[in-house]
Amino acid sequence: MHANSYVAPTMEEKPVESSIRSKLLQALHPVHLEVHNESSLHAVPKGSETHFKVVIASQRFAGMPLLQRHRLVNEILQAELAGPVHAISIQAKTPQQWEENPNVSRSPACLGGSKHDPHMGQAGRPCF
């Protein structure tokens, strides 16, 4: 895969999701980027932007250990992580790694939060 495989945003995209996508595109020039709002899988109010998964392939990650890649993404998104974003899952690969294995791992089930709160999300999968 030599062409960029940027996943276009949906019409329902929200401001935090847009900010995450924009900052990562600008800072890392990825050949592949997916930003998934997974808030609906957690016990948060409907329409929340608190839990995200980022799948990104960038040449900037070449030669970096996985922990350093995650730190770089966290640094780029520090304003979001200090504010509305409670949790972020990051899958950071080089373009070569993405080409060899474009699989995206499934996010783990959420185990925290208050599953009995009627104002929160799915009762069986609470998290904050």
Rank of each mutant, 00 (worst) to 15 (best):
59 Q>C: 04
67 L>S: 13
54 V>S: 00
21 R>W: 01
39 S>Y: 02
14 K>S: 06
117 D>G: 04
30 P>N: 10
71 R>H: 04
86 H>M: 11
75 E>V: 07
22 S>G: 06
8 A>V: 08
13 E>V: 04
74 N>H: 12
26 Q>H: 14
104 V>G: 08
20 I>R: 01
93 K>L: 09
75 E>R: 14
98 W>C: 08
43 A>R: 05
24 L>T: 04
38 E>D: 14
97 Q>C: 08
109 A>P: 00
52 F>R: 09
47 G>L: 09
75 E>Q: 15
3 A>W: 07
57 A>S: 15
10 T>S: 02
7 V>K: 14
40 S>L: 07
20 I>A: 03
91 Q>C: 04
40 S>F: 15
60 R>M: 11
22 S>F: 08
112 G>E: 12
64 M>E: 15
25 L>P: 00
121 G>W: 00
30 P>H: 07
1 M>S: 13
64 M>L: 15
37 N>M: 01
26 Q>M: 09
18 S>P: 01
106 R>K: 14
34 E>Q: 10
116 H>E: 14
119 H>W: 05
96 Q>W: 05
126 P>I: 11
54 V>L: 03
104 V>M: 10
103 N>F: 10
27 A>K: 13
43 A>W: 01
60 R>I: 08
48 S>D: 11
8 A>T: 12
21 R>Y: 02
107 S>P: 03
111 L>Y: 09
86 H>W: 14
5 S>C: 06
117 D>Q: 03
62 A>D: 10
80 E>Y: 10
17 E>N: 02
29 H>I: 01
37 N>V: 00
90 I>W: 02
76 I>W: 08
19 S>Q: 13
126 P>L: 07
122 Q>I: 15
11 M>E: 13
68 Q>P: 00
85 V>Q: 08
112 G>V: 03
123 A>I: 15
94 T>Y: 12
29 H>D: 11
51 H>Q: 09
28 L>C: 07
75 E>Y: 10
53 K>A: 10
71 R>S: 03
120 M>T: 10
47 G>I: 10
99 E>F: 06
28 L>V: 09
117 D>I: 06
29 H>A: 09
78 Q>M: 04
33 L>K: 03
77 L>C: 05
88 I>N: 05
104 V>N: 11
49 E>A: 03
86 H>T: 11
82 A>L: 07
6 Y>S: 11
93 K>F: 05
52 F>D: 02
62 A>R: 12
5 S>I: 07
70 H>C: 06
32 H>E: 02
7 V>S: 01
52 F>P: 01
23 K>S: 11
56 I>H: 01
118 P>L: 10
73 V>K: 11
119 H>A: 14
27 A>F: 13
47 G>W: 05
108 P>K: 14
55 V>A: 07
51 H>F: 14
82 A>T: 05
79 A>G: 03
27 A>Q: 15
40 S>W: 13
90 I>V: 14
118 P>I: 08
44 V>G: 02
65 P>N: 14
